[in-house]
Computed example of a mutant assay.
Amino acid sequence: MSITVRPAAEHEVPAAAAVLAEAFADDPVLRAFRPARSNEDRVLVLTDLFTALVRSVPPASRALDVAVEDGRVVGAAFWQAPRPHAGGALAFLRQVPAFLRTLGVGGALRAVRHLGRMDRARPEAPHWYLAEIGVAAVARGRGVGGLLLEHALDRVDGRGEDAYLESSTPQNRRLYRRHGFGDGAPITGLGAARPVSMWRPAATATR
């Protein structure tokens, strides 16, 4: 079966979140925010968390792309538009119960501190921010991540805008470099995790 990449419908947010949850279950940065607990279904818990994360950004200020094969979501990429996000505070407040349910009070406070450190590393120049990208285990090794990036970056390039992300593994950084991102500085203060900031200038600025 061929894989199609397209914008997600609103009803597909949980399916996309489930793919991200599977992909990030062992991610070192996420483990710093939300350590694994004994006897829990971590993917199920993280599906709720990623659903809340997506919906904490107003629809007009986000882009959620999905890779679909035979009607099943096998990849997802969640982008945030250049700030400010109109209605962002209200959208976030609506998801606070879900954040508290999945993280607990202590975990939520940890997440706020850690996300604050990552946010301070973001460039001040307007940019599209790749918050999350992941591929289901059944579709890995088939270039799905690259297809998701190409789909989104075509959209970003069409607008003549910059893009930014953080990468926590050397393997992922190689993929991002192939799509025009350059390495920045490591982000510290996240425990054992040391994600690296990566910047991709607008296509018009590279010609």
Rank of each mutant, 00 (worst) to 15 (best):
G75Y: 05
A17V: 09
R72F: 00
F92R: 14
L64A: 09
E150D: 15
G141M: 10
L46D: 15
L149D: 00
E10T: 13
A17T: 06
A137R: 15
G71T: 12
G134Y: 02
F99W: 12
S197V: 04
G141R: 07
A21S: 11
R72P: 00
P170F: 12
D162A: 14
D41K: 02
A203V: 08
H85Q: 10
T188I: 03
L30S: 04
F33P: 00
E161N: 11
L190C: 14
A36L: 12
L175E: 10
V112T: 06
A32T: 15
R142S: 08
R6A: 06
L147V: 00
Q80G: 06
A121H: 01
D119V: 00
P59K: 05
R110A: 11
R200W: 04
A192T: 15
E40L: 08
R42D: 12
R159I: 01
P82Y: 04
L100S: 06
N172L: 10
S61E: 13
G191M: 12
G180W: 06
A163F: 04
N172Q: 13
A9I: 00
P201V: 02
L130Q: 03
A60V: 11
A86K: 10
A163Y: 05
L103F: 08
W79S: 05
R113S: 10
V57L: 11
E166L: 06
G106W: 05
L147C: 04
R159T: 06
E166S: 05
A25S: 14
A125D: 00
F78M: 12
T47A: 13
A67P: 02
R110W: 05
A192W: 02
F78A: 14
P201A: 06
W199H: 05
A52K: 07
G75P: 02
P14K: 12
A185M: 07
A136P: 01
G184A: 08
E40D: 12
G107P: 08
L90G: 02
P201F: 03
R101H: 13
V68K: 02
H127P: 03
R113P: 01
T204M: 03
A86M: 02
A185T: 10
R62N: 12
L90T: 11
A76M: 08
H127V: 01
V105E: 00
V196R: 14
L175S: 09
E150I: 03
V68A: 10
R72I: 10
W199G: 01
V144R: 11
F99D: 09
V13F: 08
R194P: 04
G134D: 00
D162G: 02
N39K: 11
A121S: 05
F78E: 04
G158W: 12
T47S: 15
M198S: 03
V73A: 13
F24C: 05
G146F: 02
A137S: 14
D65P: 00
L149K: 03
V19F: 08
I187E: 07
L148H: 06
S167Q: 05
Y129A: 01
A60N: 11
A91F: 07
V196W: 10
L147K: 15
P97K: 07
L153S: 07
V105M: 09
L109H: 01
